[in-house]
Design a protein around this nucleic acid. Structure first.
Lengths: 224, 224
DNA sequence: TATACTTAATGTATGAAATACACTACACCG
DNA sequence: CGGTGTAGTGTATTTCATACATTAAGTATA
């Protein structure tokens, strides 16, 4: 380094794209900004990452503070997404954001009008470059679903094959053939039958299944 | 934000994993560190990212300064890799590194004993967590080659099918069947014949091909 | 000018997986 | 016991992956 001026770091921030399924639709967690800039716009939850704290630790602390969601227990999967760093993305000054994406089920944020899940198909205008970040996270999620068992993070401990297929359809954004879906998914050996059935209406009950593992694994061949 | 202390950002750094093929082997660009910490250890080229400069701009400036390699012209592809942020990764203090990986051919760094390409199969001990970063970049590269046309970045403008296959073999780390490789690759419609032949020794000359495009594209189906 | 050398170029048969597609099974309710 | 609504299943066709050996063509040299 040959600086003649002292080194000054950009601001470091963290943001999270937290997905879950609600009523068979993919939703993302947003907060309404209480302050300028972008006051009253919806935005991804996030905040400042100070020296001495890892991005995951900062994110965990901030998401808890701002939304009531506890990353370690409410999310069943989290991964780093991308680092966004265009100088002008924050009007207050150069801020580099390390973004994460997480998946869960039955995530219940603090009760507050300024905290809500929105279907990704019907997002409001978002602050900063957050629309771009959500789009990137959704693409990553689609891709992840096609070569890993990541769908486990969206489903309850036991689930029917119809629920499993519905999760794929909600995230992929298109329908799948029932027979082919079942044949292919069962051949991956990611799930096994339980002895339980799910009874819902005046019709035949559905077999409940569960995942062999709740940790991310790569598939032997891809899925779509 | 509810800080009672003023916000202090971690140091932001950038590092690059630059790959090229040399003698049919995958090589990575390293520099020998002139200063503590890790003085005289080999390391990825990189440096400090000050406020007001994007990570790509900082990386471009730093890689030029430290290695003579010009990212915009010497590399034919670059992408962000991952952001490494464990607090203890730099003994001088908390430094968050945004890493990039780039691919090229005939990259010629400045002539200097402290700047060199090393085969990834025979790396020296690396400073910091750089061995982990190189491993991650290599995995990403293998994956990238199997679902995109990224191999174009490693090849000259025209090339033989044997050279193309050799590039895949060097990066994948295993051999491929010649007939199946040609059949499959040609069916992807990424390349076309030229009218030129490559004459090298006392044997039949090989047809030269070129890529239809020099920008990254996803393949309709994956390759391995 | 023939032949030896070396790399380039090519095809087929088999098995595995992807796709397209429609009917029967079962439980509850009235 | 018949009606309603979701669960569950199989086959035929096509596409793709894999395994594998011989001929083609140019140069060098005897």
């Amino acid at each position: 380094m040959k600086y003649t001026t002292p080194y000054i770091a950009p601001t470091l921030t963290v943001d999270a794209v937290i997905f879950q399924l609600i009523d068979s639709a993919l939703n993302v967690l947003l907060i309404r900004r209480p302050n300028e800039p972008f006051k009253d716009s919806w935005a991804l939850p996030g905040g400042y990452n100070p020296v001495g704290e890892t991005t995951v630790d900062a994110l965990t602390r901030i998401i808890k503070e701002k939304t009531g969601v506890v990353i370690d227990t409410d999310l069943r999967y989290i991964e780093q997404l991308y680092t966004f760093d265009t100088v002008a993305r924050d009007p207050r000054g150069h801020a580099v954001s390390v973004t994460y994406t997480g998946y869960g089920r039955e995530i219940t944020p603090a009760t507050d009008d300024a905290i809500a899940f929105f279907p990704v198909s019907r997002l409001p205008d978002l602050a900063y470059d957050h629309a771009e970040i959500v789009k990137y996270a959704h693409e990553r999620l689609i891709s992840k679903l096609s070569y890993t068992n990541a769908v486990f993070a969206f489903l309850p401990p036991t689930f029917t094959l119809a629920e499993l297929q519905s999760a794929y359809e909600a995230i992929f954004g298109h329908e799948l053939d029932k027979r082919n879906f079942r044949k292919k998914f069962l051949s991956l050996n990611l799930i096994h039958e339980t002895t339980e059935m799910k009874r819902t209406g005046a019709h035949r009950p559905a077999r409940l299944y569960e995942f062999n593992t709740q940790t991310l694994e790569s598939l032997p061949r891809s899925f779509d």
